[in-house]
């Protein structure tokens, strides 16, 4: 059961971030980004689907990937707080992506040695995608941080807004800790070095400062989310809720 919960945490992270990114579709600052953002959303949703399917099989109660995604409520969702944060402006969206990908890339790399075959399979694909997300989002953080006065102000504002949610990435829930002990998942705290290195490098070029965080925010793994997640789920789950049992 620990494995089921830990896989759901990962699946929820990917779905919620993918959903957030998909909200940009058709509204990006330039056409190239209207192509790049759905690309990243597709990577994340693709990963989420495999993980939900895995979770559903681990549970063995005949639920499907869509049952898990569409029919759980806020308190049952286990994603970290970072991924559910509203898109804000383009600076916030890109920084959130960089923070997440800079964690997931070393995580998936380490997960290539997982004792769980499905996790190994997901890792093989996701590690390449996350490297691309780091590159794409990182380049934007640099451009915006070292661009105009306005973009620099917005970028630093994004750091102030989002940095307090990054600590949660390195925390392991009891379920995740159990999986780490069994060699199913990498130890989340071990990603700190790689994450600091990537963020440090990007921030150096972007002329950004990592702020002190007096009050880091956590709670997602226990289902204590921000108020916006419920709205996201209400929108995402609308058809499944309005027409129970229908096939789409």
């Amino acid at each position: 059961m620990a494995r089921l919960e830990a896989v759901l945490e990962l699946a929820d992270d990917h779905l919620i971030l993918g959903h957030r990114i998909s909200e940009w579709c058709g509204h990006a600052p330039m056409l190239e980004e209207d192509l790049a953002l759905p690309n990243m959303a597709l990577d994340l949703i693709g990963t989420a689907r495999v993980l939900y399917d895995h979770a559903a099989k681990l549970e063995g109660k005949g639920r499907s990937e869509d049952d898990l995604a569409m029919l759980r409520v806020e308190r049952e969702y286990r994603n970290c707080l970072l991924v559910e944060r509203p898109n804000g402006d383009f600076a916030q969206t890109m920084l959130r992506q960089l923070y997440f990908a800079a964690f997931m890339e070393p995580f998936w790399k380490a997960a290539l040695g997982s004792s769980d075959e499905i996790i190994r399979g997901v890792a093989g694909k996701a590690v390449k995608e996350m490297a691309y997300h780091i590159r794409h989002a990182g380049e934007w953080v640099i451009r915006l941080g070292d661009g105009t006065e306005e973009s620099a102000r917005r970028m630093q504002g994004a750091v102030t807004e989002l940095h307090r949610f990054t600590g949660e990435l390195f925390e392991s829930s009891p379920a995740a800790a159990a999986c780490e002990a069994e060699g199913v998942l990498p130890v989340r705290a071990d990603m700190r070095g790689d994450w600091d290195r990537v963020i440090g490098m990007v921030f150096g070029e972007a002329l950004l400062e990592q702020p002190d965080i007096p009050f880091p925010q956590t709670g997602g793994r226990a289902g204590i989310h921000g108020e916006q997640l419920g709205h996201l789920l209400a929108e995402m789950q609308y058809l499944q809720r309005a027409y129970p049992g229908a096939e789409w």
Partner: peptide, 13 residues
């Protein structure tokens, strides 16, 4: 954002 399944959401995106 309201696609009824993950498969439909990915295809529409």
């Amino acid at each position: 954002t309201r696609a009824p399944s993950l498969k439909r959401k990915a295809a529409l995106l």
